[in-house]
Amino acid sequence: MANQFIHQEYLVAGNNFNSAGSASEAVKSTLKKMGVASSDIRRVAIAMYEGEINMVIHAGGGIALVDIYYDKINILLNDKGKGIADLEKAMQPGYSTAPEEVQRLGFGAGMGLPNMKKYADVFDIQSEVGVGTTVKMTIYFG
């Protein structure tokens, strides 16, 4: 059991707000079928959705690699977007660079990265301007 895991890969389309969230919804449904506690599923769903939305808004899309074990989930989000110039600032609640038309949809509260950090047990972000951004998150179950 301990060695069993599910690997999933998702392509997240850039600037498509109709499909945004579908990867997170798919992961959520997998965890539900596995019988993971709903409080843990909620943390995974929030952290992953925020990451997914960030790639949709800021990076022209990206990929999400998900490894689900019996006791944890690893989520890796990778994009080849413009990168984040000031990571420290980007991590501050309320700071957002989302364009106005995206804010009209309800995004751009500047809570994306803070939410990810809050709900993931392990959170790591690496970003280089002009190269892209990689986020690694782990959430333990139970």
């Binding site: 969230g21 579908s22 997170s24 919804e25 769903a45 959705y49 949809l105 309800g106 995004f107 939410n115």
Partner: peptide
């Protein structure tokens, strides 16, 4: 939506004036 994602309790009633498709994703998640 990020505020809702982060703060709306499970099984809550969510009052909003946002009416686009992303509302469904947030409500579900």
């Amino acid at each position: 939506l990020s505020a809702v994602m982060g703060k709306a309790p499970t099984d809550s009633a969510w009052f909003t004036i946002m009416n686009n498709v992303n509302v469904c994703a947030v409500a579900t998640l």
